[in-house]
Write a protein that binds this DNA or RNA. Sequence first.
DNA 1: AATACCTACAACCGCCTTTCG
DNA 2: TCGAAAGGCGGTTGTAGGTAT
Length: 393
Amino acid sequence: MGRSPCCEQDADVKKGPWTPEEDKLLVEYIGKNGHGSWRRLPKLAGLNRCGKSCRLRWTNYLRPDIKRGDFTDDEERLIIHLHATLGNKWSSIATKLKGRTDNEIKNYWNTHLRKKLLSQGIDPVTHRPRTDLLAGLPGLLAAANLGGPAAAAAGQLPLDINAIKLQADAAKFQILQGLVRVLATATAAPAPTAAPPGIDLMTILGATLTANSGGLLGQQQLQLSGVDLSRLGQYDGNYNLPPLTNSCAQTQPMSSMSPDSLLNRISSGISGDMLSSPELCHGGDGCLSSPELGQGGPSRSHMTTAPVAAPPPMVAADDQQCNTPSGGGISCEETPASSTFDGLASLNLDDIDINDMEGCWMTDMLLAEQLPSWLSTNNASEMHISKNNTSEM
DNA sequence: AATACCTACAACCGCCTTTCG
DNA sequence: TCGAAAGGCGGTTGTAGGTAT
């Protein structure tokens, strides 16, 4: 069946914004008679409008039970969660938010929440970490490293190397946020009875980095970027990531770390020896397995993220305090006056919903994980990627 | 002060599904 | 059962107001 026109094609019906007079007519008519047939309503109400336009005006704006005003934090969280579950089913989402219309929710999503998720490194469509950031990272890193003395000598300095470096840092940080998100998702999901096909984090890294230049990233660029992709080239999907620990008794919550300190930890490249240091590996067995992942165990197989049908959404958390667990004692780091992230307001570490994480293992990950080395632009040569072997760390 | 650009949101468009004679 | 009408939905556009230059 073809599309049926909502109004006569030749009808001289009015379009565009509604006037207060038109609103009054519509409200009065529906108040007295109900809307009945929307197609007949305009003529009966004395409106020179398409019935469809009348319906939209009523349902989206004039209906008396419509809730006006800003969306609350709870509503935001609910929308994000429902979107992760339902996708762009705005009408279905609207049924869960009393007084909100599908159009209003859709607009709010497109203008606020979508950008919010993007700023957190979350793909607003899949609610998973953005891989486009990974794809663009090598270029940013390469550009950032082009600002070295050699480039200066060659007269090849980029226009604004600081800006590019900032972008590279920002991209790395967002990637990190996303990866934390992936891990949190895997943690929150029920332990699968059989290991489901998942997304291997290193596969994402390797695939996106190498795919960035049509599947072949030149060695020169790789070296410039400081990312030792020769190791990625060796990667066959079986690299083990270091074990995660669920012990956080003395670990500083990520939320209490300043972006700079976090980034410093990343970019400084933490050596594998630190993994066994009492400071970081304080949880005994907790340092040797990742029970939350449900697939760690003694073999410590590489991390994957279970494909969850409805991953918990990344929601903006309330301001996190330096609330190390009792017995913690690590004080919050002060954000340096001159921060790498100055001006990058969108990259707010507090936006990571720490409450959504089970345990503090991800903090340990940030401190002891090899991942920082992968993302490091400075110490790629110090990476200790071992295949099926983490004992050397 | 003028202009360009950006943002938010109301409204429209076109397709699909449901209802009804 | 069929086909037209009506309703519903999601994507897109137009525009007003705000902000930056």
